[in-house]
């Protein structure tokens, strides 16, 4: 554990909580891509199956459980509780365009051809592109509310901090995981355009 890893995790947690609270407080999920949220729920489910097989630390287990719980709670709010406010017409990105190629890649490029390892690899690759339906939706509607941009900022910041974490771990622990690093770089790059808008326009984004 280093400072980048910890702040990265907390930034990720902040993003998830911000989104959940936004939907809960406004009683609306307008402008939020349900598809990105389904993909994130799938990411956490396939990655954290190791909750059943190995114990790393109380911190690790707690965070995993919180991430999974929040991901499903968000999907529930969007598709069940506040379904009437869900903007399905603008959330038109096809999930299979991401899930199928990512699944194929996970089978081809992985550390070990075993069930759990392939699901872990799948989750890493899928996470790197899971935000695309959300970004696509913003480009389609041409705007994003302030609180949605805060959500995206923290989500992007989390991955950027993880990149520093991996540099740290490489120098001080000799640890590096090429799959996580490359996918993490792709994921961070996807947010660059958004970061630029967030910094220059500050609040709600209008394209």
């Amino acid at each position: 554990m280093n400072i980048f890893r910890l702040t990265g995790d907390l930034s990720h947690l902040a993003a998830i909580i911000i989104l959940l609270l936004k939907i809960w407080k406004t009683r609306s999920c307008a402008g939020i891509s349900g598809k990105s949220q389904i993909l994130f729920a799938l990411v956490f489910t396939t990655r954290y199956l190791d909750l059943l097989t190995s114990f790393i630390s109380l911190y690790n287990t707690t965070m995993k459980v919180i991430y999974i719980g929040c991901a499903y709670a968000t999907v529930y709010l969007i598709y069940m509780k506040f379904k009437a406010t869900y903007d399905g017409n603008h959330d038109s990105f096809r999930m299979e365009f991401l899930v199928v190629p990512v699944g194929g890649l996970a089978c081809l490029v992985n550390h070990d051809f075993s069930f759990l390892e392939i699901l872990w690899t799948f989750s890493i690759y899928l996470e790197s592109v899971a935000i695309l339906p959300q970004l696509f939706m913003i480009s389609k509607t041409g705007e994003a509310e302030t609180i949605t941009t805060h959500y995206l900022f923290f989500l992007g910041l989390y991955r950027a901090l993880y990149l520093f974490n991996w540099i740290w771990r490489f120098y001080f622990e000799g640890f590096f995981d090429m799959i996580a690093i490359v996918a993490g770089m792709v994921q961070t790059i996807l947010y660059c355009d958004f970061f630029y808008l967030y910094v220059t326009k500050g609040q709600g984004i209008s394209l």
Binding site: R5, D9, R47, S54, I56, Y67, D112, Y162, D177
Partner: peptide
């Protein structure tokens, strides 16, 4: 083949 160390990152 990967060693048996579990993935420790989130």
């Amino acid at each position: 083949k990967r060693d048996e160390t579990p993935h420790d990152e989130l």
